[in-house]
Structure formats: structure tokens, C-alpha cells
Design a protein around this nucleic acid. Structure first.
Lengths: 190, 190
DNA sequence: CGCTTTGTTGAATGATCATTCAAGAATATA
DNA sequence: TATATTCTTGAATGATCATTCAACAAAGCG
């Protein structure tokens, strides 16, 4: 009976994710979104409810894509190699809207306002870190790295270094690849 | 002949710096600034010209304070020890408006818009990195660390790690001190 | 004390913000 | 083809944005 939407919802979320990722929450206006998604206000609000609701969907999409990418690398190369390759893959991904991490950008932008989206970014960073910890534990189990270190500590440091790398990759005069290589090298020395 | 301002301009810049540092550029409204600085619009614009102009002054103040803090540590403890202590000092400074670095926050928020303030944050990050490189070179000259490494590479990695540490320090479930200690330890192994 | 200079005040400006809603258009079923 | 249902359109809303300005207040110098 009804009329059907003439857009692909998933594609819209992906495009919104890229816009939010690049420009941030306050830096992306409804006008920007309407232009990018080719949606008039009425359709937009019927589809997503609010700007914040779409940002939340975008954040979830970002997170799922990230974990899947990591899982794929682990399946292909094993735990240690995946941890070594991931930072390079992230900063050399030309398709990415930004080199910096959308989760850290969101956290930094909205944390001081106590915005709900900041908390969600925080939780997803935690989720990523647990994935990292699992890979470190797996690498230890396979004898790829020494079993003396606490996987959670390793993951916390790895996450921290990765965030730093990705901010550095946004700078003009920085050789991000060199930093990523040093990260990988450091992991090899464990 | 004239009437004199009844505020301390330097104190105002410092308070504005803390507000911008914590809340970011878009996250700080003129209303916020008027309330914090106790300045009506007319006085504000007479004193600073625009919100952006004040942000720029705040950024400069932030940079000068940072370099002075680093210089003080180097004079007191020597180059290597200063580099080891600086990250800890930064994340444990209770007086700071935010654990994260104002320069990286500004870069991340405004870079995509090609905003002039993003470029200035970028330049100041570069300035900090050169300070770090000078300290690494100094530590090498004194034999505190091996002379085989390139001080610029060391500084780039150090800056990257420091930025990551400071973002991590904003997270809820992270032991930033542990990460800072590992940074210091890594420097000791050079 | 009066004059000149500068600081302060706060209402007004126009732009842009996210959001709403009533009216019209499209489509799948009956 | 008629009808029910959903989607699309775009003007309107009220809030908030940074900024301006004219009127007023204060203070140093003659």
C-alpha cells in the first residue's frame, strides 16, 4: 500500500558517518547533512529522528567497521601481525574521511559538555581496547610474544599509541608512517 | 585623561584559555565567555576584537606556558629526566582545564574547515616537537641516551605518544599514570 | 570644576541553528 | 482504478549564534 523510501538507509548512514567523522558534531550542520544526503528536513526527521540520533548510528557504524577490519586482519595474518599491520592500514586508508579516530574526536569534542555521545564514544574505545587485549593474549598463547606482560596493560598502551599516531597523521609536517613502523617494531620486541 | 579598564587583561586571557581548552571552539559561546570573563559584549569586542582573536591569544598563552614548563623541568632535572617527567606532570596537573592537549583538540576540531586556528595549532605542535628534539639531542650529547637515534624521529614519536597519553587521560576507564610510566621506562631504555 | 578620553552597558542586528508540520506526491494493494 | 499508506517538500518556528552601536559612566588633566 505504501510508498517506499527512494534512498538506501545504510548508504545514508555511511555518508553521514564520513561527514561527522571529518567535521565533528558541531562542525556538521543540518544544512550540510541535507546537502550530502539529499534529504529535505521532513524526510530527514522521518528517517532518523534527530541529528544526534544519526550521529549515534554513524558512531555505531564506525565501530562495527573498525572491529570487522581488525578481525579480518587477525584471521588473515594472526594476532601479532594484525596488531602490527592495523596502525599502518588505518593511516594509509585513502577511503577514510579522516586519519584521526572518530571515537577520540567525539570524546574530545563533547566530553566537557557531558554529552551522551561522548560517553558512547568512550564505551566504544573500551570495546576496541578489549579486542586489542584479546589479540595480545592470543599472541601470547601462540608464543609470538612473551607471556610476562599483562595483555590489558599492553592493550591500553597500544590504544594510546594508536590514538596518538592517528592525531599525528592529521598534522602537516609529520611522517606518520615512520611512527607506525616504530610501533610495529616495538611490538616485535615483546 | 582616560578611564582605565577594571580588569586584568592577562587574567582574562588565561580564563578564556581554560574555557576554550575544556570546551573547544564551537563549544564555547560568547555567552559563556561573557559569563566567565564578566564582560559585556561591548567591552569584550573593545578588548579583543572577536572570539577568534581571543582564541588565538589563548592558544599562544597555552603554548608559552607549555614551553616554559618544559624548560623549567629541563633546567631542574636535565634533558632526559625532563622528558620522562613531563608526561606525568601534564596528566597529573590538577590545575589544568583538561588532560588533553589544547593544540591537538583545536587541530582536530577545526582542521577540516580549513580554519586559520587549526593551522596555528599545527605550527605550535611543531614548535613543541622541536623543543623535544633539542632535549633529545642534549641527552645524547651528555651520553644519557645512545647517539644512534635521530633526535627528530625520537621527538616525533615522543610527541605522538604524549598526545595519545593525554587523550587516554580523558577516558573513564584508563590508567593514564601506567601509560606515562611505560613512556618514561621506554625512554630509559634508549 | 569642566573637558576630553576611554570603558561600560545592554538592547538590537541579522545570520544560522535544529526542528516541526501541513500540504502534496507517489505507490502498493484491494 | 480507487484508496490507504507512506514519503517528500519547503516554508515557518523559535532559539541561539557572533557582532554592532548609541547612550551613558568614569577618571585623569587643565
Amino acid at each position: 500500500m505504501p510508498r517506499r523510501p527512494n534512498y538506501d538507509r545504510d548508504d545514508l548512514i555511511q555518508r553521514a558517518r564520513d561527514l561527522f567523522w571529518r567535521r565533528g558534531w558541531a562542525g556538521t550542520s543540518m544544512k550540510d547533512l541535507e546537502a550530502e544526503l539529499k534529504l529535505k528536513p521532513g524526510s530527514f526527521y522521518a528517517a532518523f529522528g534527530s541529528k544526534d540520533a544519526l550521529f549515534k548510528l554513524a558512531l555505531e557504524r564506525y565501530y562495527v567497521d573498525g572491529t570487522e577490519r581488525l578481525d579480518r586482519l587477525a584471521a588473515e595474518h594472526g594476532a601479532l601481525k594484525a596488531l602490527q599491520v592495523f596502525p599502518v592500514a588505518v593511516i594509509e586508508n585513502e577511503a577514510a574521511a579522516s586519519k584521526a579516530c572518530m571515537l577520540s574526536k567525539t570524546l574530545l569534542e563533547l566530553q566537557a559538555h557531558g554529552h551522551e555521545l561522548a560517553q558512547q564514544a568512550d564505551e566504544k574505545l573500551q570495546g576496541m581496547e578489549e579486542k586489542f587485549a584479546a589479540l595480545f593474549a592470543q599472541a601470547q598463547a601462540r608464543g609470538e610474544i612473551a607471556g610476562t606482560h599483562d595483555p590489558k596493560r599492553l592493550a591500553a598502551k597500544y590504544q594510546s599509541d594508536l590514538i596518538g599516531l592517528r592525531v599525528s597523521a592529521e598534522r602537516s609536517a609529520t611522517d606518520a608512517r615512520a611512527i607506525a613502523d616504530e610501533m610495529a617494531e616495538g611490538l616485535g620486541r615483546l
